[in-house]
Write a protein that binds this DNA or RNA. Structure first.
Lengths: 239, 239
DNA sequence: GTAAGTACGTACCGATGGTATGTCCCACTT
DNA sequence: AAGTGGGACATACCATCGGTACGTACTTAC
């Protein structure tokens, strides 16, 4: 929790990497860049994006703004770099959980558990969930999510809903995945923001299990999408 | 879409309201304040919170910063005022839709339709969904949502899930409501951001109908929360 | 008429994101 | 061995913007 010791040891210089095209000089670039990202990640998490000044970041990384603007085009670009690292960590954690089992519904449960843990990570909550949309803009935010955690939800949805009973087209799978993704995010927020996170996680699990059980029941009964019709389509035709 | 004519006509002065304790002077305060909120709402929607300067707001409202700071403690307070008006409009629209029917599940569908429309409103998307959490902070954001649209979702969930088959405790209802709220938000985003909003709305409806049908099936089969157990509780005990 | 308070307008400050420019150092050429 | 080109920074500075201090006109109460 201290403020120093963020920038890693810079002792090792690059040992003449011959593979790459033409980075022919020992560059501190990589370590400096990582240091900036690390400090920014910490400060963004603690104070949020707008409340974190570039001066405090470069001070924490023990460089100057010249270095920062040499590596990043601006504050937002730095945020994006931080955003990606946090997302990557989250993706890795969930992927690891998914590898623990192979059965589709079991994978769904394992993924749910991993996601509920990820969303309790302060870095993820603050940088991805809270500041992400506003800073990156909704378009870029969606693009990023599309390639990381959402992709995993999509995969799970595909392996369960598309398993055998139903044959869903791609758009429909996307729709289900988005809905579940939103449900999971809200569930995670609930857990993370609850007075008693453990009890909240328990309730969330129960609720999601119940919803999943409903879908499984429909699958067992061989009920298809076309079978559930509450004739409410016309109401939306005035967009 | 023009930039002028935002501030409404200021012709009417207050006609000596005797009820209130001591607002004893004809104040332009109300109209000035509303004008600021109206201009801010427009600019916040078009450019987002951080990209909108106070100078542009007061210029649009044809006042000065002195007036703004007389009515609001700062930029964030002005945003909160805008936020509340947008939320109020959304709440009103959904409430009106809910009044069209009385049967619980029908109300749920009507509310869903109304919510899908609301979330396509650029003001709601930008001010409430996108900038709201980051500007207000998660705590205040949650408090606001708690009193408006989420309260409606909660009401619907209560009238359906708590109808007769199940007897759910308050915390469980809250959990379901949060999950559904997240699902609806994501569904709305999907619709609003889709290339073909109508087709997307159709898919969203189908998917949500399907999920609801699953719950109804469980209700018909008299399946309770305790009956669905995939023994996954222990995995979360490491919070 | 005067005191008080509201509803602003004007002028200004400090912080912050961003830029322009200079400098050091290494690698490569000749 | 000197020159030179460019990467990796540092320094100094600027412009914008949120916020503040203060002045002023106008109204009401007494």
């Amino acid at each position: 929790m201290a403020k120093s010791s963020v920038s890693a040891s810079v002792s090792k210089l690059v040992p003449k990497v011959p593979g790459v095209p033409s980075p022919r000089r020992p560059d501190f670039s990589a370590s400096t860049k990582r240091g900036l990202v690390a400090v920014a990640e910490q400060l963004f998490t603690e104070q949020g994006y707008s409340a974190t000044s570039l001066d405090s970041i470069v001070a924490g990384a023990e460089v100057t703004k010249g270095a920062l603007y040499h590596h990043f085009s601006g504050k937002q670009a730095l945020f994006e770099a931080v955003f990606e690292t946090v997302e990557d960590d989250a993706t890795r954690a969930i992927k690891a959980a998914l590898r623990t089992t192979k059965e589709p519904w079991e994978k769904a449960i394992a993924g749910l558990q991993a996601f509920l843990l990820v969303v309790q990570d302060p870095r993820y909550r603050r940088i991805v969930v809270q500041d992400g949309p506003a800073v990156l803009g909704y378009e870029r935010y969606r693009e990023q999510e599309e390639r990381s955690t959402f992709a995993l939800v999509m995969e799970i949805v595909r392996s369960t809903l598309d398993a055998g009973t139903w044959e869903l087209e791609e758009d429909m799978l996307q729709t289900f995945a988005r809905i579940f993704f939103g449900a999971l995010s809200a569930a995670g927020d609930t857990v993370a923001g609850a007075d008693d996170p453990l009890a909240a996680a328990d309730r969330v699990e129960t609720a999601l299990r119940f919803i999943i059980a409903g879908l499984q029941t429909l699958a067992d009964a061989d009920v298809g999408l076309a079978d559930v019709d509450l004739r409410l389509a016309q109401g939306l035709d005035r967009g």
